[in-house]
């Protein structure tokens, strides 16, 4: 499902003397359907960078990132948008939404984007919010005013609303209590069971051991100082 070959990334800071900071070279990753792979490595080693490159959020300088046959490193914006709509989900650590849109609709949106019926999408959203213990009285409000933990759970609900064939999870269990952590882990297990290919970053080692089939240490891809 996800095939990464010889991935390269550097940042050029034009406004700071054009400093070039190489952050990745020779990145490799292969994730099959139904498999969950954890990215590990020290903070700053490039876990999030790799994940963002898979999502097309960061531009790769070299190599290929095949997701469902589309090379994200070279694809046109509209191809990446289609991929994000139909194939590739991303649960980031931060919730970014339009103010004024209700929590229910924030969660239902990915389903609406693939053409689901409004009521069906909202039913699915209600079920997920309930499962993640977001009190019903909050569903009509915008999540921008919620606590960090609540926002994180809304973000997860949104990420799992549509059954993406591939999922990127950035610290999905951080800042969650035991009950909700359990819910998230079972959501991940269910996604695996239906055949989703998952790439995750988990600092929570117990969680990682429970849901992940393999670990890839991104430190191996850190460029050696020349």
């Amino acid at each position: 499902m996800i095939e990464i070959r010889d991935l390269e990334k550097s940042f050029t800071l034009h406004n700071q003397g054009s400093a070039v900071i190489p952050v990745m070279a020779g990145g490799e990753l292969s994730v099959a359907a139904g498999e969950c792979v954890a990215l590990i490595g020290a903070s700053g080693a490039g876990k999030s960078t790799m994940m963002r490159m898979i999502y097309g959020n960061y531009l790769a300088q070299g190599g290929s990132i095949l997701v469902n046959g589309v090379d994200v490193a070279k694809a046109e914006p509209r191809e990446i948008l289609e991929l994000r709509r139909e194939v590739l989900g991303y649960v980031s650590q931060f919730l970014r939404v339009v103010p004024r849109v209700s929590t229910l609709d924030v969660v239902a949106e990915p389903l609406l984007n693939v053409g689901s019926d409004m009521e069906q999408a909202r039913d699915r959203a209600r079920a997920l919010l309930k499962r993640l213990n977001i009190p019903e009285r909050l569903w009509g409000l915008s999540p921008t005013t919620f606590s960090g933990g609540e926002q994180q759970r809304v973000n997860i609900a949104r990420g799992f609303a549509y059954d993406y064939p591939a999922l990127l999870l950035d610290e999905p269990t951080a800042s969650l209590d035991a009950t909700n952590r359990e819910v998230v882990l079972s959501l991940i297990e269910e996604a695996k069971a239906r055949g989703a290919a998952i790439v995750g970053i988990f600092h929570d080692e117990a969680a990682r051991n429970r849901v992940c089939d393999r670990e890839v240490d991104v430190t191996e891809f850190t460029p050696r100082a020349a």
């Binding site: 940042f11 406004n15 959020n57 960061y58 914006p77 990446i80």
Partner: peptide, 22 residues
């Protein structure tokens, strides 16, 4: 510079875009 909105804003490549975003 052109590209996906979030890519251009989060990983700007051109000096001017970097200045604009920062």
């Amino acid at each position: 510079e052109t590209g996906l909105t979030d890519q251009v804003l989060d990983d700007p490549q051109h000096a001017y875009t970097q200045l604009l975003v920062s």
